[in-house]
Amino acid sequence: MLGLRASQTGRLATSLGLPRLVLLLAMLTAGMAVLWNIGRDNDGARWAVWVSLAGIMTLHQSRSDRPFADRHLEKPMEWFLTEYLVLLTPVWLILIMRGHLFQLLWLLALVPLTKMKPWRQSHRKARLNPILSLLPDDALEWKAGLRRFFYLIAAVNMAGLAVSFYPAALPVAQLLTGWMLMAFYEKNESLPLLRSFELPPAAFIQHKLALHARIYSLISLPAMLIFMLLHPQYWLVTPMLMFAMLLLHSYAIVVKYTFYDPGQDSQAGRFFQSLGSVAVLLPLLFPLVIILGIRFYFKSLNNLKPLLDDFR
């Protein structure tokens, strides 16, 4: 398995190409610097531990190689835990270096929580059919994505509403929801699905962007209005946040179609989409994402041209 992981990492590095690899390393270094900075005080260290644990839990729930590991490894959970501890190296190193040993113990004690069986939501997912039928027929990513994340998105927003008397509560819920929505555009559809719209490249991308903007604005509206009523002095915060999120979602859409390969996962696409996800937490990256987004818009048109040009 170690050899397999090493060759997978090697393939990923090769498929990214040198400029993207350098960008990835720069991002990791920036992430480490932020983590180092956050880890100055106890509150920051606690935040880093909980965010890391949430990340690991999400990764464990969503990874698709669990059945493979269960079948072919003698002790799959031990393997997963080892992987997670390796992934968390920057976190525990910084905790040691900053002397937050209590937080380090928390981290080490809670990582095995990933042993919990993944949530089985299949039947609950099908129960969402009546709600999702309200969405337009072509909002396929929304239908699939909401089935994946509905309960998580609902929980985050309910929690935000429950403590909405705190000014930060609803914007944080909005931020987390927007972050989860970026995952809606991870998967590449098949070519028949792409061509079912019968639109040329520019019209197709614009349709996708407009459809997303319509649905997202509509579902964000109730929380925005409640926030404006409760905290009128900060009324501009949620519309600004919504606008920023819309830009990031548009970025995710154009990245998807820039690296679109029918029905296949694109490593480069995943990488640039994760850059957008990171920009939610690191606003410093935001301008870079916007510039890349404009560039990717034109690149996505070129990528789709051979596939959709006959609908002109």
Partner: peptide, 29 residues
């Protein structure tokens, strides 16, 4: 020149979004 408006293609392997229903899929076509 052939156009996508004239041709429908059934591929050997079809990729589907796992989390949509068959009816939702068909509505797109």
């Amino acid at each position: 020149k052939p156009s996508g408006k004239q041709i429908t293609f059934l591929e050997t392997e079809n990729f589907f979004y796992a989390h949509i229903t068959g009816r939702e899929y068909l509505r797109l076509f």
